[in-house]
Every structure is written in C-alpha cells, then in structure tokens.
Design a protein around this nucleic acid. Structure first.
Lengths: 235, 235
DNA sequence: CGGTGTCTTGAACACAGTCAATCGGAGTGG
DNA sequence: CCACTCCGATTGACTGTGTTCAAGACACCG
C-alpha cells in the first residue's frame, strides 16, 4: 500500500499530527467598518430605491458595499425564469466581494436602502500592503462562506416548515430589537431564498402560527415564540 | 422620503457612482501552493485512510489542509441522522478554513487521501504580517464562497436529473484528464451532496445514460457526452 | 372607495421519497 | 478457479410532500 512516492507520508493514525497550541485564534481585527474608514479608502453613501439593481450578473466588480440601512438580496436567474436568492444582506453586512473580475450574480435593494460604496481597486491595493485589512477581508469572506454552508444544509435536508422556521429565526437574530420584527422582503423573495414556492411559504407560516410558534400582525410583522419553534426545527 | 439623516446620501439614479477604472483586478498571487511553501510555514504530508475523519464538527480548528491526492468531503449530520455533504475537495483544493475557533462541520477522507497539513496559528501570524499571503487566503475563501453559491442554486432550483448532470460535469472538470473519469464517492455521498436519496441519484444516472448523455463502465467509471448533457441541464 | 399587488387558501397533480426486492462486483476463502 | 459473502447500486411499486393552477382575501395607496 505504501508506494515509493508515499514514502515520506505520515499515516494519520500512527502519529499525532503536529499542531500549534491554538488559542482563540482571532488575530485579525473584526472591526471592518473602522478599517474601511482608513485613510485612502474613501467610500460614498448611496441611496438605492426599492427593487433597484445595485450591480448585475457578469458586470465588472468595481466596488465593495456595506449596508447602512435597508436590505439587499443576491439574485441568480436561470434562462427559463427560475430564480434563486443566495443571500440577504442587512444593516452592517458587507457584500459584493468576489474572487474574479466579474460578479456571478446580481444584487438588488429589497427596500429603500442606504449603502457605503467603496471602489474595489484601492481596497485591494491597500489589502496587498496592509495585512490587517487583507486579514479582515478574509474573515468577512469566511463568514459569508459559513452562512452559505448553513444555507446549503437548509436547502438540502430540511422540510418546508423547517426552512421557514429557520429563516424567520435567522432574520429575527439579524434584526436589531427583540420581540416583534419586520420582514423587509416579500413572500417571493423568501420562497426564492428557501427553494420553495410562495404558496408553500404561506402555508408554512400559517401552520407555524396555528402551532403557536409565532404571532402575526399583517404578513410581514412577526413575533416568534422560541420554545414551540425549536420543536418544529428538527435540530 | 429623504429624512435629515440621509441628507448626505447620494441617490444612485442621480449620479454615476465613482468607480476605479478596473482592470483584471487579480493583484493577489493565486499560487497558494508556493506561498504555503514560504519559510516558516512547515507543512506535513499526512495519509488518511478511507472514511477516516480528518477533523470533527465543533473541534478546534488547529490546521489548514491541502489535498495532494484522493478526495475529501465536508459533512454535517443533524441529530435525527439526516446528512448533508456541503463540499468535496479534490487534488489541489484547500480546505479546513474557518473564521471562528472551531469547525462547524467535519471533514472525512472519501478514499485513501494524502494531504498537506499546515498548523493554523503560524499561517495566520504570517498572514497578519505578509499581505500577499493574507490576500491569497482571501481569494481561496472567496472561491469556496462562489462554489457554495453555485451549490445553493443547484439545491434550490434544479430538478433531480439537472442536479446529477451538473454534479457529474463539475467532477469531470475538476478531475485531471478528459474522457473517462472516476467518481471517488459513493451514491450516498452524491445523494447527500445533492439533497436527494440514493435511489433518485441512481434513477437519474440511468436516465442520463438512456438519453445518451453519458457512458458507464461500472457504477463509478463515467464518460460524459456534453452535447446531449447540456440539453438536460436547463441552463 | 375602487384598484392593484401581495398574500392566503383550496383541489388536483407530479416529482422525489420510502420501502422492499434484486442485481452486481470486489474481496475472501475453500 | 469457483462459490460465497458483503456492500453498494439498481429497479419496482406505492406514498407523501411540495408544486401547480385557480380562486378569493387582505392591505396598501391613490
């Protein structure tokens, strides 16, 4: 089994893998807002109207964005009209990061939204010189990566009711206050985020209400009851 | 609509957003292997047996990995046994990156696998000093982020046959040669990656074969016929 | 107070899941 | 070399969750 080319390989079961005595390991600054205010990184506050496109798919990625207020959706549309929302960005979130020269999806304001817009080139130039900034951008990307993995788990292995329950929990946590909160997006956005139809989302919300897992005031004003909600979330 | 606190905000439709004249924009070095060979970053070649766990969920993230040969799966298991594979890593891929101190999922060798293992702390220390390394790690994370978004689109808005067709295309592209290639993973892994059951994966492959979109030699040895395959992929 | 867009509800259907039996291929031992 | 075993893959019949198509309720705004 051990061929010559593997001669220097250590079998994982035979030896303890050499490791650093890891501590909290968050050496990078988490304070992206302040870093982005560094000299030379001049951002612009921009107001986007409801449903306004912020950038389009295949468009050159010239800017990086941070939400001040409002909500933004990342959208991919297939040629036959099927639509997928891959992420929502709320106040404080950074979006528009991409490895390549072009965006792979579009971003649209869900409601009237104010965002800081930073030109990409100067940011990347600065990141190439300032390791702290680069490290911070790395963390921002990793955090989005982990959100994406949660999303994959949601879409791959959860029922409709579980998806809607998890979605509402997520939005509640990312909204400011506790108690009542407002869904900025329509049922269509939610459905396209959860890989469902608007009818199924509607039925799931109705069912959650019937089971006592939430209270409603209109379609978008919601208050969760966490104890019964957890019961319906599976894990 | 424009309140006082928005006074300094520029409406996106009124002015051209100031942008840098963006070029190819890939200032960061893409050559992660060579960067990881920098002085001070001492990796270890480690051999993992088939199905061996490389790291577990909730385990401290002490290392970063790069696949030399073989294949690795990222796995999340819910308490009720439902299983989701969030990614496969093939030769050349970096994995084990995480923002927090702990892994959110486990990683397992799909087949006998050799990987380079780099201790995390020294890498992050170096990244905090060397902006090029930080920038490169940033790109690695962004690339995984984009793969995650493709995965979300797959799970959210594609039929079973489309998912399997897209999956086979993806593996073919990431494998070395052209023509025939080998699936290192079982039907269970594929099903858990695509959010399907093994029976549905099996039926989809059978159907793709019947429609002339692929040839089979055993369950894992495959050759794709791209023209008919595209037809069945929707977009 | 009407009009329009969004949301909810209902009934029929379809796609993928479940349960169960069979097939196939790699490895093992006689 | 063949028979046996085991695990994974395939196929079939039936079920169920979520979709589709269609109608109606609600709320927001002129």
């Amino acid at each position: 089994m051990v061929r010559e080319e593997d001669a220097l390989v250590i079998a994982a079961r035979d030896v303890a893998v050499p490791v650093a005595p890891a501590g909290p390991a968050d050496g990078c600054t988490e304070d992206l807002p302040r870093l982005m205010a560094l000299p030379g990184l001049i951002g612009t506050r921009v107001l986007f109207g409801r449903r306004q496109e912020i950038f389009g798919a295949d468009e050159e990625a010239r800017s990086i964005y941070r939400v001040i207020s409002g909500a933004v959706r990342d959208v991919t549309v297939l040629t036959d009209g099927r639509r997928q929302v891959s992420a929502f960005h709320l106040a404080g979130d950074v979006f528009g990061l991409t490895a390549g020269p072009r965006h792979s999806h579009s971003a649209e304001a869900v409601v009237e939204t104010v965002a800081m817009v930073y030109p990409r080139r100067p940011i990347e130039d600065a990141a190439r010189r300032d390791a702290r900034l680069a490290c911070t951008l790395w963390l921002a990307a990793l955090r989005q990566l982990e959100q994406g993995q949660d999303h994959v788990l949601l879409l791959g292995r959860r029922s409709a009711v579980e998806r809607v329950a998890a979605f509402l929990s997520e939005i509640e946590q990312r909204s400011v206050g506790s108690g009542w909160f407002v869904l900025p997006m329509t049922r269509r956005d939610i459905a396209d985020y959860l890989g469902l139809t608007i009818e199924t989302v509607s039925r799931a919300v109705t069912r959650l209400e019937a089971e006592g897992a939430l209270l409603r005031a209109g379609a978008k004003r919601i208050r969760l009851r966490h104890a019964p909600l957890r019961h319906l979330m599976g894990d």
